[in-house]
Nucleic acid binder design. Structure first.
Lengths: 135, 135
DNA sequence: CTGAATCCGCCGTGATACTG
DNA sequence: CAGTATCACGGCGGATTCAG
């Protein structure tokens, strides 16, 4: 997974693009991480196990629908960002254990807020969509 | 814009697809809306003007780097979801005013939490990335 | 069993041009 | 100035395959 993200660090190319938001709006960077399909779910799963560890297969079971590739890729990204700790157990059937770092654990708070809003208000959003579609 | 349930509803297979998350995990739906590049920023801009209105050009100025198309597209999506109200002023130079709905305004809270986390912890994330890249 | 690499389809994004 | 339509491009995500 290229960690260099979308906005090119190349200056001069286009001065009016999102480059300006890297310093002014770290929210953008955060959304690049949690805005994807799986990150927030994995953080939730790992947070519920905190400070315990989860194995690869265990995580896969906890996040039904995730592909083998995306689980590996997402965990790599989270580890790269210092949100997840990775412990390899050098056995014959290799086991790898993942856990939330302290930093990653602090993300669970805001994430829970988002979940709470979603659970409380997504029905209203769905209703608005239904009405907008109907007319 | 959405409503495309891309995951295949395989009948025979046990529910391994993402379909199960529509009811169980509204967070997924919310991220489909705020996970993109501009939604959260526009909500912030509109929230700061709440309960006032913003014109198209005004929003464009407030979100430097956004393209004409994406601003239009994002606003359409937000209106569709009942988060933004749209008022057309039938004048010769047509003006359109956007404002946050009450529902949309309630989203600003969680969003602010996310921003706060990002501003406080993204430096640590960047540092982790730097270290991970260095080694 | 973990996980990395490859091929490919889909969608988000931007540039451009056009209508009112 | 507001809004839409069209096209091209790049990256994400999934299925599959290969390595350790």
């Amino acid at each position: 997974m290229d960690e260099q993200e979308g906005t090119s660090p190349v200056p001069g190319e286009r001065g009016v693009t999102g480059d300006l938001f890297s310093p002014a709006c770290p929210t953008r960077e955060l959304l690049d991480r949690i805005g994807d399909r799986w990150t927030s779910m994995l953080v939730k799963v790992l947070a519920e196990a905190y400070p315990g560890e989860c194995g690869f297969a265990e995580l896969r079971r906890a996040a039904p629908g995730i592909s083998h590739k995306m689980l590996s890729q997402t965990l790599r990204g989270l580890t790269f960002d210092g949100l997840v700790h990775r412990r390899v157990e050098p056995a014959v059937p290799p086991r790898t254990w993942y856990s939330l770092t302290a930093l990653g654990h602090t993300l669970e708070g805001p994430l829970a807020q988002v979940r709470a809003w979603a659970e409380a208000n997504m029905p209203a959003v769905r209703e608005a969509r239904r009405r907008a579609t109907a007319e």
